[in-house]
């Protein structure tokens, strides 16, 4: 592990930002707390996707499958078999990890190109949603309704509202920290060489299969855990939301707009775009239906055109110009 990781752990900015975020529920109305909670869900999801999609450069569309397992399956385990949701969280994460490993292995075994990888992962995601909609155990097309959140921590309940916000804040922070940790460890170096040039990566001793699988397993397990927390927050396990490829597209979009492969990029993208989308919908959704999508789309396209590598690199350039001579490169 590079020293930068420990510096991040000891950084007052990090802890300051967390503390400020943590007191938000006391300052903001419940509507904005809800929007921030959603934003944190997507910070966590985009950051977990970033490990595969950003660092290793593998555009996985299978993540709705992992989110779906984490949410629908753990909900079904609780409702149908009475299994505690903490345990459900672990079981779902393990299943997601195994599926992730299988997908990564298939990719390696059949030497899929970038486009084939995208399509194979999309096929996995579609299979997942078909299974969920067709299997009553998982609620079928009508979904599952979780018992009311009474704040019983041992039953994976956080008391809704503020409690859910803090839970999501902790989860989002963990996902971002995992990103920081990976980028400052050998795995980060391996994944970046694999993304840039697989053959050359192998020629300097990188075991492609092992690290592709490692990345996919970590990413899938995190996405699954976030899925479990998300469904607890939503209370209603809606298959059309949780195991639809649309949720993956959103994650990919946030990560790309924020800055692919960077530790804080996907988080930045989600923190800006989720509130923007929600507020536009809240303000315009009833008066001019559809207009919020239009404005949102224009914002996203503009960002991509102005700074194709994401907002984080743009902000860094602006910051460097403002501070004067640039400091040497960062990971």
């Amino acid at each position: 592990m590079r020293d930068e990781f420990y510096k991040t752990l000891a950084s007052p900015i990090w802890w300051g930002a967390l503390v400020i975020a943590a007191i938000m529920p006391f300052v903001l109305s419940s509507y904005y707390v809800h929007i921030l909670t959603l934003a944190l869900v997507y910070v966590a999801l985009a950051s977990s996707w970033n490990i595969v999609g950003g660092m290793a450069g593998q555009i996985s569309l299978a993540h709705s499958l992992f989110i779906g397992i984490g949410s629908m399956f753990s909900a079904a385990l609780l409702l149908k078999l009475g299994i505690n949701m903490w345990l459900g969280l672990v079981i779902s994460a393990v299943i997601s990890g195994i599926l992730g490993a299988v997908i990564a292995w298939i990719d390696f075994r059949f030497q899929l190109g970038h486009l084939s990888f995208v399509l194979i992962t999309l096929a996995f995601a579609e299979m997942g949603s078909i299974v969920v909609e067709g299997w009553d155990f998982l609620g079928g097309a009508s979904g599952l309704l979780l018992p009311k959140d009474t704040g019983n921590f041992l039953a994976f309940q956080f008391g809704g509202g503020h409690g859910a916000f803090w839970m999501m804040l902790a989860l989002a922070a963990i996902c971002v920290l995992v990103n920081v940790a990976i980028l400052n460890s050998p795995l980060g170096y391996y994944l970046r060489t694999i993304r840039d040039n697989e053959k050359a990566a192998q020629a300097i001793g990188v075991n492609i299969l092992r690290y592709k699988i490692t990345a996919m397993v970590i990413s899938a397990m995190l996405a699954s855990v976030v899925g479990t927390a998300y469904v607890r927050y939503l209370t209603f396990a809606d298959p059309y939301l949780l195991i639809s490829p649309v949720i993956t597209i959103e994650i990919v979009l946030f990560a790309t707009v924020g800055g692919l492969g960077r530790a804080y990029g996907p988080a930045l993208g989600a923190l800006l775009l989720v509130p923007l989308g929600e507020i536009l919908r809240g303000k315009l959704g009833s008066t001019l239906p559809g207009l919020h999508y239009f404005i949102y789309g224009i914002v996203v396209i503009s960002v991509i055109l102005v700074t194709p590598r994401g907002l984080l690199p743009l902000f860094e350039r602006l910051w460097a110009r403002w501070r004067g001579p640039a400091v040497a490169g960062k990971p």
Binding site: R2, P186, Y190, R192, T193, N197, A203, I204, G261
Partner: peptide
């Protein structure tokens, strides 16, 4: 390699560090 293999988004130090990780811990 005859045709120099490049890594788009990594510095020279990053690339050589990855090679050095073959036998050495991170730092």
């Amino acid at each position: 390699f005859q045709i120099v293999q490049s890594f788009a988004d990594m510095t020279a130090l990053d690339v050589v560090t990855t090679a050095a990780l073959t036998r050495r811990p991170m730092r």
